[in-house]
Design a protein around this nucleic acid. Structure first.
Lengths: 340, 340
DNA sequence: AGAGTCTTCCAAAGCGCTTTGGCTGTTTCG
DNA sequence: CGAAACAGCCAAAGCGCTTTGGAAGACTCT
């Protein structure tokens, strides 16, 4: 059942039927009703390929997926996707993942924009002066950045959580508890969130006249194994920290294991606070010692990004509005006063 | 730069240019070369919307993503996606995720097929007589099932791992080590993989005249917390098992925690084998006691599914060929002889 | 009553590609 | 040498929608 048939059946022109269906004003309300009715009754659905060719709009949002044998997709992605999908479903938006060589994403961005394959894109895990953000900005497609890219020299729309504030508060709490030697086990510091978190810790320490020693901070890909190794390294050095801030629950698993392997305890010897993106399958309250966390649902962020993308597509949102969400600090058993 | 302009520039008809570019035979080789050359020089890329409208082919593969506030996307998904994307990139295929109400995926399947939005789809985590498989089969779109759906009454193409064999071998090893009371902490038993794994364990036990008691098997969503709870329940009952087979590494985290909480040890009191889908961020060899596993890379499966989908799209693969991959049994420190 | 203004609808021209049906000139073969 | 076969190209008709530029009729206003 296509437009032509429907129009013929109603003894109307395709023009009128199309306008009736798309809510244009120049059509009699009764006619519109007749058309809507017939469309529903016959299950008419406009062919998206045809519509796309005519309008250039695709009803899809895009994401360039970096791939490659050495590239791992972050498990956070799936939670973000959950939220995104949840919103997108309610608004009949599809999501297209365009796999790209991790080292050459530009080609793919150019392709999907030139081909008008998607109406908007989002970018995640940006780094400082991220090239993708600059590119997408000049290409002129609606977009939202999940995270921030500092030093780009222009404004852009983004959604981020207050990573600096979160880790500042976490560190401040630890300092208040008497800790003087803090350590930070961070994510890859080519990403802004890691930079912000480090800044947050440094600021909190500075406020009490303390510093974060070079040997007390490590930036690694957030795996359990890296959490373990970092912790071993930290705790086996001379001025071992008495408190650790950690950028992910998965790494925290490794931290806990390392602490135990060294015959130490949490929070007796080491206090621990980790960032929790809220996974359904791994919860901080279920750690052997319940884990204090800075908590922010990445799933909610996914839904919000979808919502804003939809708004930008339909012209409801414009400009370079940045949105920063506060982060909860949830104190559980893994923190205590400094030993000694 | 569109076809018309390119044709005009070459003083050829659109027909000839189109045919030259698409490798049709009825065009002089020299002409073809000229066309190909000019196309490359001017960076001509056929408009996919137009091509799609004309041919009905989209160059995309589809996946219906169940969503909803209560629906969690499996973290395995991201690894599968990694492999899929890796292959898809090399073949210029995009992946479109169509979010659907988890309780009504049929509408979405019908839509993406009717609209010809994708050239093929894959289905994951099927259950017995899965309705999606039947639906997609009748809709007549190329597809591959990742996993199996038994009792459908028809054949279909799939890729699965030998879950039964894997867990049979795992259980057999435990029995050989003298264990008489095994337990299985399984995934949701509405999914075929869980059924197969249980069957594998039962067969291995039966071969030695043993059985799997009802109180020794649990089917739960695969979270750390559920792994913990199941283990507590198992080990606190009267005829507690001395060995546990577990369907996922994430659940195994909970198992380990529960065993420790009960003051027991692995493998002293309890032997443990878990299935490992090979995550980059959580490795069995890094468990406090290195974990024995049945191992099969879900990422490789993703790549293979993409490969077969591409083959089916281009007509290279046909029929209902099923493919079952063997699973490695990797023995590490978490298994030992039965206590006592 | 005539000019202007709405309202409501339509024919037709795209959007950029593929594919059908045919046309021209050259080669092949009985 | 004439018919048949073939190679190589083209014009035009789709694919199914949106949108432009009217047109016809009803209505208002002077």
């Amino acid at each position: 059942m296509n437009l032509k048939q429907l129009a013929h059946m109603l003894a109307l022109s395709q023009t009128t039927v199309s306008r009736a269906l798309n809510g244009y004003p120049e059509v009699n309300e009764e006619t519109r009703r007749r058309v809507m009715d017939a469309a529903k009754r016959h299950g008419y659905r406009p062919n998206p390929s045809a519509r796309r060719l005519a309008t250039g709009k695709s009803g899809m949002i895009g994401y360039v997926l970096p791939t490659g044998a050495a590239v791992d997709i972050d498990p956070h992605f799936v939670e973000f996707l959950s939220g995104l999908g949840d919103y997108a479903r309610a608004h009949e938006l599809d999501l297209v993942l365009s796999p790209a060589d991790a080292d050459d994403q530009e080609t793919t961005y150019r392709r999907i924009v030139a081909n008008r394959q998607v109406d908007a894109v989002y970018i995640s895990s940006p780094g400082p002066a991220d090239r993708r953000v600059a590119l997408v900005n000049t290409l002129g497609i609606p977009f939202i950045v999940h995270g921030r890219s500092e030093g780009s020299g222009f404004d852009y729309p983004y959604l981020d959580i207050d990573n600096e504030g979160a880790f500042r508060e976490a560190a401040r709490l630890l300092v208040q508890l008497g800790h003087r030697r803090l350590a930070l086990i961070n994510g890859d510091n080519r990403e802004t969130f890691a930079i912000h978190r480090e800044r947050g810790v440094r600021r909190a320490l500075a406020a009490s006249g303390l510093t974060l020693g070079d040997s007390h901070v490590c930036s690694v890909v957030m795996t359990e194994e890296n959490g373990y190794r970092a912790t071993r390294r930290l705790l086996e050095q001379d001025d071992a920290p008495t408190a650790i801030a950690c950028s992910s629950l998965i790494m925290a698993l490794g931290v806990v294991r390392a602490v135990r392997d060294l015959g130490l305890t949490i929070p007796g010897d080491v206090s621990l606070i980790a960032h929790d993106d809220v996974f359904p399958w791994l919860k901080p309250e279920n750690f052997s010692v319940p884990l204090s966390t800075t908590r922010s649902s990445i799933r909610l962020a996914g839904a919000r990004v979808a919502e804003r993308l939809a708004a930008r597509i339909s012209g409801l949102e414009e400009g370079a509005r940045g949105e920063v969400w506060p982060v909860d600090l949830v104190v559980r058993g893994s923190v205590a006063g400094a030993p000694g």
